[in-house]
Design a protein around this nucleic acid. Structure first.
Lengths: 186, 186, 186, 186
DNA sequence: CATGAATGAGATTTCATTCAT
DNA sequence: GATGAATGAAATCTCATTCAT
């Protein structure tokens, strides 16, 4: 792995455990196995590193969701694919997700342009728009729907983490929640 | 106002704006109009102050919700009272709520006993239990229901903040969301 | 006991355990059971307290030695009385003595006039002078003799503390050491 | 000179003049001509610095005494070599010695293992043991003898400092004291 | 006199960042 | 490009001392 990635990896792990300011750059460098100065060759400042890490994670998530959700002929199935892909990524990348949550509630969020943050919601927005036009989804504002969906996903994730279910049980809960959600928005 | 409260007030304001570590204790003292040392007479450490602030806010919210939600004979109405009281408190105490969100995604959360955190959910848990027993609410696990409800509330709050609606429009959205929620869980 | 004495007592105990600067005045007041401000009513500054404590201890030791060493017709016996009285006081007032040692090797010593410090040696000086004139003691400078004697006493005290002998054994060692000392200076 | 040594040097000088707590680390760094932070790169805490300084001085003294006391065939001469070497080091390193005295009467002493402290006495202990076995020295406990000897050396040193004799006079006093000591223990 | 809350100067320590090698 | 020693600004926290009650 390249040094840049080693640094991002180490930073992620430490930030989630100790918080942004509870993690000195020196510890990140140490954990990454590089020299202190190397970190500052790759990222101009610590804030730069934090932002770069956020952008990197968002990108990885988007990519995963895009690649792992087949577009089908049925609207409901396409929507389900998106929902499951998102949840699976979050479940398999708990640390990344906790970082994102921490970042989004922190003042660092303001370092990023709002469009950049919205970008991740683009696929779901477009899909919902189609759903409304097709008369499948209730004619509510798209950003309102996105809010409903994502808050459920985030809440569900927290719930799954707290309860440590078996894989099949987890799947069942995710599936049941989808049904509740579907009923709510259609 | 007492100095202790002045300090809590100043801390709240600054923490939300600059983050826990972006806010030096000296600035808090200054903003509160007390001497630096006074802060440490009232709170042994900065961490203590952060935790005390969280506990204080949770207490104030619980008290408000309790005092502002009448118990009625209709289960649905009682539930609605609780829902509205919660949302109204959050809307009128945006800064407090942002602090709570920041606190809950930070490593500081681990400084508080899990029971302490759950305590805020006790009224709603008891109510839902009764609702299930009365056959009004779907027979789902209570903590699962709590998750569904609170994630919707949090999401809705973010949505309202972002959109800056007029008071009547706000009320309409809150009311409509309640209907969606009610359909989902009954 | 008066407050002043309670403060001196508490200070002594804490200074020996934690050092002068390792002991805050607030802890002294607390240990003494008086208010913080009371300490500063009795002693203008912390340094004043430290010096007063030293002077107090030296006075108590002098008084004890004076009262507990009978003047006899035999020079050797009178000298022995003084030697034993000194050692017994030190042994029974270990904490006081450790304070004195700490004080004497610290920069606080310079806050006291040299005459004040020498005062404690006055009785032994006068006695030795007589001993020399009587031809009993070797005709060496009196302050040289005092140095020999006191360094032996200090060393002996450390030795007794380290070894924790029984009372009779202690007495034997003290007595034997006197004989060595007597041989040395006569 | 390396920065570490510059810091130790500055610390020694200031500690002896102002005491451990009367000397801020910032002054040490300044006196040493290094940045404040550099001090804490070399020594994790101020206490660490104090302990390191003590260990360093003890080591230097041991090394000097070892290197400057020839072993001879005569027991008395060998003993005398040790005695003189010790005294000469002390006299030429007054500041170091005052530091050691201050350290040994302070609560910092407890930060060092007792064996570490005793180590400095090892050569003299072994020599005295031989002397006893050879029937030259009085058959007294070795640690008792060490106490007698070291207390005389310390006392003599204080005496010499106070009186500021010329070099030859100093030598005479040291030599005379050796004779008294020798008489006492043989 | 006694009290103890309030003060603020100052101490130790941390850590993002630089730069000579 | 990589390194890590050096930097010094800034943060948290302590504590002698004051003073209104």
């Amino acid at each position: 792995m390249e040094k840049t990635n080693k640094i991002l990896d180490a930073a992620l792990k430490l930030f989630v455990e100790y918080g942004f300011h509870g993690t000195p750059t020196s510890k990140i460098a140490q954990e990454a196995g590089v020299a202190n100065g190397t970190l500052f060759n790759k990222f101009k400042t610590k804030d730069d590193l934090i932002v770069a890490l956020f952008v990197d994670i968002e990108l990885r998530m988007s990519k995963f969701v895009e690649e792992n959700s087949k577009e089908t002929t049925s609207f409901k199935d396409t929507f389900k694919e998106l929902y499951f892909a998102s949840l699976y990524w979050i479940i398999d990348n708990k640390i990344e997700f906790r970082f994102v949550q921490q970042f989004k509630t922190s003042p660092f969020l303001s370092l990023i342009a709002p469009e950049e943050i919205e970008k991740a919601h683009k696929p779901i927005c477009e899909l919902l728009q189609k759903g409304i036009e097709a008369g499948v989804i209730k004619p509510l504002p798209v950003d309102y729907l996105v809010m409903l969906i994502s808050s459920l996903i985030y809440g569900l994730n927290d719930y799954l983490i707290k309860n440590e279910f078996s894989k099949p049980k987890q799947h069942a809960v995710i599936s049941d929640t989808f049904d509740l959600l579907w009923d709510m928005i259609t």
